[in-house]
Design a protein around this nucleic acid. Structure first.
Lengths: 342, 342
DNA sequence: ATGAAAGCGCTAACAT
DNA sequence: ATGTTAGCGCTTTCAT
């Protein structure tokens, strides 16, 4: 006994396949009586429509895709991704749409993955880690694969974008640190080829006026450590450092302390992305939470809307919140307990 | 101009669809000359086989599934999951198999998700977060959906299992702490309904002999904090606490320090899973890394082997490594020689 | 309101 | 070594 098909259900219900199909889709009026017979038959046979058959007939996979071009090791230590996925899923669940995930290592593999998505695996994709020079945007356009870009894409595009204001929290942080008397404020950025890293670095530069204390890291702990060492060895060393993520920040302040500096008295430190452990460090790390869950939900909803035929739109999600914690406190303010998390 | 089909390629190459199909699958000898013509035609038309059509014809989705029944918020702060996924993907990439992910909130939704997987979305699934009483195992068996279970499943099953020795690192940790003179060693476990939490708690009990200092947490920071408070208020409080994950451990030692205790002098602390930040805390947190990346790879490879027709197997991945760090150091060790070399 | 039949784009017997 | 012909399990005209 192999899996039942729509034909089996039709036979048991004493109708044709078309009737069964329409009883479910509602694309045609079906009398209450036949509908009941059809549902009963389906129930009895435990029938569930085959998604591949349906996909072939409707040219709709009922799935969306995400292709991640990251080293597995880097992905593994990423705090953003799982939350983002969760957000995407909350949006998809309501529409019975699945998520197809592919992690690739090379440009070739990435292209192949998108081609596969375009050829029946997915109806559209969400594009993460936007670069300033993006080959994927024209590529996807040419594939005619609907896409939603996460982040601000400058070039011309007919794709929807889900943006976040990357600059504002940087400005706020710089202002906050200045308020505490800091004048030498450094920034350890992420790879400047990423649009969000670039936007943050740009905001920093506009506030500070000089690239003297700007360094480009790679989001890994190693680069956080190395660049911090470099900054601390300057003749006129910074008294505060803004890092592009928490991993680099923690590696950095850990190094600073191993050199005898006290955080925040000798060196104030702030991160980005608000790792779930950051509130529990000692001192607790000031960071910027960016609600990846909400962004995932919004991006997925946007894509579903595009697929439903709505015109593409630029959405801005306002979701960054400054978490001011002990690592950027004024000297006088010390002695507080770590904050409660909710 | 809609997407090219295998028929278009066949026409351009001057052969039939079957030849094109076989030129790619290699399931039939094709002369080098025709093969070349076929590939050239495919190249010219930018043809990629439709995965839904292929899925329907072969009854193979060329995808495997993972259904996660977790709160999005909990998933978001999980260090295991992204690394595991990466591992899965490294195995799948070589076989051009996709990963379909579904995060569900309710039991009903979970069943529906598995049903959908069974009906063409996926060829098999990897089951995570194994419970001691598992409805999913018989359910999947009844659906005849191939599965690989991550963890030791006690009941009868014809599914492959990918196990890890959860007990050994607990025993080692207890022994290590005893060697440092600790006699009151507590354990803040994960939910005991999980097989791995249970196995760890069991190992702890066998070593320690009494459940007096055993507490059941939920892997969240909040429960780590609360249960630590409870343990520290005991008349004869523990001098060391083993936590079932790093999140609880960090919340716990943060609380202990806010009460004036020094780690590791007044309280030794160890976690589990080796969060990527744990090595950077002060003091660095002793933990057990369990190589989720490798486990993901092995689980996926096992599933692919099952799907290829190999008989199911029980595989044990020996991948836990004790990371002894400052949070469990001997008092004497700070500035003196440790009494034991490992 | 329902039935009959023609695809969707592939793969897999069965031929030659 | 290649062509012919049926399907795979749905959806969707076109009839009635």
């Amino acid at each position: 006994m192999s899996r039942p098909t729509i034909g089996d259900v039709a036979r048991v219900a004493g109708v044709t396949k078309a009737t069964v199909s329409h009883a479910y889709s509602g694309k045609r009026p079906i009398s209450a009586a036949t509908k009941a017979r059809v549902f009963a038959a389906a129930q009895e046979l435990q029938w569930v429509p085959s998604s591949s058959a349906r996909a072939l007939a409707t040219r709709r996979a009922n799935a969306i895709g995400i292709v991640l071009a990251r080293e597995p090791a880097i992905l593994a230590s990423d705090t953003f991704f799982p939350a983002f996925i969760s957000g995407v899923e909350t949006a998809l669940a309501e529409h019975e749409v699945a998520l197809v995930l592919q992690v690739v290592g090379s440009r070739t593999a990435e292209e192949r993955a998108y081609r596969a998505m375009a050829n029946g695996r997915a109806d559209g994709v969400i594009v993460l880690d936007l670069h300033r020079t993006e080959w994927r945007v024209p590529f996807l356009q040419q594939l005619r694969l609907p896409a939603v870009l996460l982040g601000a894409f400058d070039g011309p595009t007919s794709f929807s974008c889900v943006r976040t204001d990357d600059a504002a929290p940087v400005r706020e942080l710089v202002a906050h640190l200045r308020g505490l008397g800091h004048e030498r404020i450094a920034h350890v950025a992420g790879p400047l080829d990423y649009v969000h890293s670039h936007a943050r670095a740009q905001a920093y530069l506009e506030e500070v006026g000089t690239p003297e204390l700007l360094r480009e890291g790679d989001f890994g702990a190693g680069s956080g450590r190395a660049l911090t060492a470099e900054l601390l060895e300057l003749a006129d060393r910074p008294t505060a450092i803004l890092y592009a993520n928490d991993t680099m920040a923690i590696a950095g302040y850990s190094l600073a302390r191993s050199r005898g500096l006290t955080v925040p008295d000798d060196l104030a430190v702030a991160g980005f992305d608000d790792d779930h452990l950051s509130a529990y460090l000692t001192p607790a790390l000031t960071s910027v939470s960016s609600d990846p869950l909400q962004r995932g939900r919004v991006a997925a909803e946007r894509l579903l809307a595009d697929l439903a035929g709505e015109p593409p739109r630029q959405v801005t999600v306002d979701c960054t919140v400054l978490r001011l914690r002990a690592s950027t406190e004024a000297r006088a303010a010390r002695g507080h307990q770590p904050e409660e998390t909710s």
